[in-house]
């Protein structure tokens, strides 16, 4: 009978486990213990600032890939990736017409992984637009805009416009022929508005044609103005997903 009272033999793995997860520093960061029990798993989500975007439990149908294809989450993930690569690109780029083009050339030629960095930023931007569009289609075809989610659909439409604007403002920055003429064509379309057309074009370009003022305006909007605005709308969007009862499902 003595055997039963003896504590079970502690293996080497247990020792490592305790060393990592049961020390004072670890527990000051993660208060809830390793998420290997349902209680700790829920606490892990609820007490983590990043994860608490989620509820602790969700309906079984919502983890089916074919219900959402992760499109909204991936759009947000693209935004995060674009922020990271964008910040890194800012180290090498000066938004003046004397330096902009040269900076991109040097980034591609002289900076280690510079070309990869720029490629990532560009393809992620394209991917984000496509993902946002697909996300909108997913929400529409699953009828997820219906009450009580009307307003969040409107926020989504605003996010779509902001995504396009973010991409459009970034398009000018390399200051090559592609950038210059694409923005010239784009802003000419703005200028054809029946009311305040010329005025909005002037406001956007800081002049009558694409030049140094336009570059600095597009740059500022691209790296700080629009990211701030889109972050606010994203916060509202995610918050409302939770507030409106999570993902839509049949009544």
């Amino acid at each position: 009978m003595a055997n039963l009272e003896r504590a079970p033999r502690r293996s080497f793995n247990d020792l490592i486990y305790d060393l990592i997860f049961k020390n004072y520093v670890w527990q000051s960061i993660f208060r809830t213990g390793y998420p290997n029990t349902p209680r700790n798993q829920m606490l892990a989500v609820a007490t983590n600032v990043f994860l608490h975007l989620h509820p602790t439990r969700i309906h079984r149908t919502h983890v089916k890939i074919t219900h959402t294809y992760c499109l909204g989450g991936l759009s947000f993930f693209m935004f995060l990736g674009l922020t990271v690569t964008g910040v890194l690109l800012m180290f090498y780029y000066v938004p003046s017409i004397e330096r902009a083009y040269q900076d991109i050339q040097e980034l591609e030629a002289n900076v280690r992984f510079g070309q990869l960095l720029r490629n990532m930023h560009r393809w992620m931007a394209h991917a984000m637009i496509i993902l946002v569009l697909l996300h909108m289609m997913r929400v529409f075809y699953t009828g997820a805009y219906k009450p009580p989610r009307e307003f969040n659909w409107v926020v989504g439409v605003v996010l779509f416009i902001l995504t396009l604007l973010l991409s459009f403002t970034g398009y000018l920055l390399p200051w090559d022929q592609l950038a210059f003429w694409a923005i010239t064509v784009g802003t000419t379309m703005v200028g054809s508005a029946p009311v305040l057309g010329d005025e909005s074009k002037f406001l956007l370009l800081g002049g009558f044609s694409v030049g140094p003022n336009a570059l600095i305006r597009f740059y500022t909007l691209h790296v700080i103005g629009l990211p701030l605005v889109i972050s606010i709308f994203m916060a509202v969007h995610f918050w409302r997903v939770r507030r409106d009862g999570g993902l839509a499902r049949p009544l």
Partner: peptide, 10 residues
Amino acid sequence: AEVLVWPDLV
């Protein structure tokens, strides 16, 4: 009918 967000969704 519910699952835990950690680990199923995360």
